[in-house]
Design a protein around this nucleic acid. Structure first.
Length: 128
DNA sequence: CCTATTTGACCCCA
DNA sequence: TGGGGTCAAATAGG
């Protein structure tokens, strides 16, 4: 990980969502982006991902996401994608993820997380 | 066979 | 009314 420029901006952050803004402890992409494990009823933090490397982070932040929709947003040059927890959705995982590309920079992804994860992501995931 | 992904339509909120 | 968001069905791939 050498060159990931991700900016974590929480509008009403108070509990903190970005745990580690620094270097990961040896691993590549894991625990570098939002950890929903807070007593908040609903969460909506947005992370700005830049660079291709960061793109991989937005694609896999530690959970499995199932795309449930895509809509072209007016004023936006690129469509927005809606994701939801894939397998754990049946377990009651209310976590959702919205991904919107920036107006100009295709390298900039606005990832918005909503809800909390109530499922274990290691159920069908490989060792991390 | 099961899971993930895609597109369209419908519904809800501003 | 418009835009945004979500759900549903179908298809493809593993």
């Amino acid at each position: 990980m050498s060159g990931i420029n991700f900016e974590a901006s929480s509008q009403s952050q108070a509990t903190g969502m970005i745990e580690s803004s620094g270097p990961v402890g040896g691993n590549h992409l894991r625990a570098t982006v939002p950890l929903f494990r807070k007593p908040q009823p609903k969460w909506t933090g947005h992370v700005r991902i830049c660079k291709q490397k960061g793109l991989q982070v937005s694609l896999d932040d530690g959970y499995n996401w199932k795309k449930y929709g895509q809509k072209d947003i007016l004023r936006a040059k690129h469509p927005r994608s809606y994701y939801r927890c894939s397998r754990s959705s049946a377990e009651g995982c209310k976590a959702m993820k919205h991904v919107q590309q920036s107006d100009e920079e295709r390298s900039m992804f606005i990832v918005t997380y909503q809800g909390k994860h109530t499922c274990l992501r290691d159920a069908h995931l490989v060792a991390v």
